[in-house]
Amino acid sequence: FALDATKKTLLVLGGSLGSRRINQLIAKELDFITNQNIQVIWQCGKLYFDEYSHFNEKPNVKVVSFVDRMDLAYAAADIIISRAGASSVSELCLVGKPVIFIPSPNVAEDHQTKNAKAIVDKNGAILLKESELDGKFQPVFSHLIDDENHQIELGNQIRKLAKPNATQDIVKEINKLIKK
């Protein structure tokens, strides 16, 4: 990603197709973020890459349509902004880094908010609703960046919720049921 190892890194994820609202937020707040000595890996989605790729001209910003090596992106990240789909939440629990979830309100039964809230209720992440972004993003982000203890606590708590052996556990339960 051609990053500066001395700077903290924000990883922004909006899903493979991208998130219009997260992209709008990052475009609006990019100067605010980078002025805090933060560099950004911004996965904007293939639908939005042409619209946001010009931000690659800014120092400390790497805009990509899709991240092929999520392992490297997660390793580089100090803080992550993400949607809260089930797969994303599961992965982020394993990653164990501080996360700001911005759930999509446009999904069945608002399940992304429920997914995020399950983590937030265990002090493992921060939840910002799309409707709150304009008024709350800057103070929430600043507080997180300024408080390394909070970052560590969020990372530790979300990691506790990881289920690294979920597939094996499910297979064991199925086998128990079959034997009955």
Rank of each mutant, 00 (worst) to 15 (best):
D50F: 04
E91R: 11
G135T: 14
K46S: 13
G15F: 10
R159A: 15
V171H: 09
N106K: 08
R159S: 14
G15P: 03
I152L: 14
I81Y: 07
A5H: 07
I81W: 01
N23T: 03
A86N: 09
N106V: 03
I33V: 14
I178D: 04
Q138Y: 09
L154W: 04
I38F: 11
H111M: 13
K160D: 11
F101M: 05
S16G: 11
F137M: 02
V64M: 15
V61Q: 00
C93H: 05
L10Q: 00
K8S: 06
I170W: 08
G124Q: 03
V140H: 01
V40Y: 04
D110Y: 12
F32R: 03
V95N: 08
Y52K: 06
F137V: 03
K28V: 00
C93E: 13
F55R: 05
G96Y: 10
S19N: 01
N56P: 05
K136T: 01
Y52R: 05
D50G: 11
A5M: 06
P164M: 06
V67I: 15
L3P: 00
K129R: 15
P164I: 10
I79G: 06
I119F: 12
P98T: 06
L72Y: 13
N23P: 02
F141A: 06
E57F: 09
N165F: 12
E148G: 07
H111G: 12
Y52G: 07
S131M: 11
K180M: 13
F49R: 00
V89E: 10
K179W: 00
I178N: 01
I178Q: 06
P103E: 11
N60Q: 09
G135P: 00
E130V: 05
S87K: 09
D110P: 03
D50K: 12
S131A: 15
I174N: 03
K46Y: 13
L127W: 05
